[in-house]
């Protein structure tokens, strides 16, 4: 699964370069997240602006990725497309994660 990580200031940014986070790639997603967030900043932003589709397995994988960060670290999401946003709201996961409309908005919140 194509994902890239970079550090910007005090933020770890992980970008999903794929159109889907679904059952077919849920395990790979968790593994990639573990690799990219093994150490580094305590706040992680997951950039999902290229993701057009997520199912409950993908959602579960994001929850698992948040848990594997451990206490004291935080996972936020940025750039949710309408279909992804819909699944987060229906399952009320929007109450668990901080969601930003774009990566810029997430970066701005960290700078402010």
């Amino acid at each position: 699964m194509d994902m890239t990580g970079r550090i910007e200031g005090r933020l770890q940014i992980v970008t999903v370069n794929e159109p889907r986070i679904d059952a077919a790639v849920a395990i790979q997603f968790k593994d990639e997240m573990r690799t990219h967030t093994m150490d580094g900043p305590s706040r992680v932003i997951l950039d999902v602006s290229q993701v057009e589709f997520i199912d409950s397995s993908g959602l579960g994988a994001i929850v698992a990725a948040m848990k594997q960060l451990g206490p004291g670290r935080k996972l936020d999401l940025a750039g949710l497309t309408p279909a992804v946003d819909n699944v987060f709201r229906l399952t009320r996961m929007d109450s668990v994660f901080t969601l930003y409309p774009s990566l810029d908005a997430a970066l701005m919140s960290a700078a402010g």
Binding site: D55, L59, G60, A61, V63, A64, M66, K67, T91
Partner: peptide, 14 residues
């Protein structure tokens, strides 16, 4: 608590 959040079981709900 975050460590107990469900990682599945959303399928039929959706």
């Amino acid at each position: 608590p975050p460590a107990e959040l469900p990682e599945g079981g959303f399928g039929w709900f959706l």
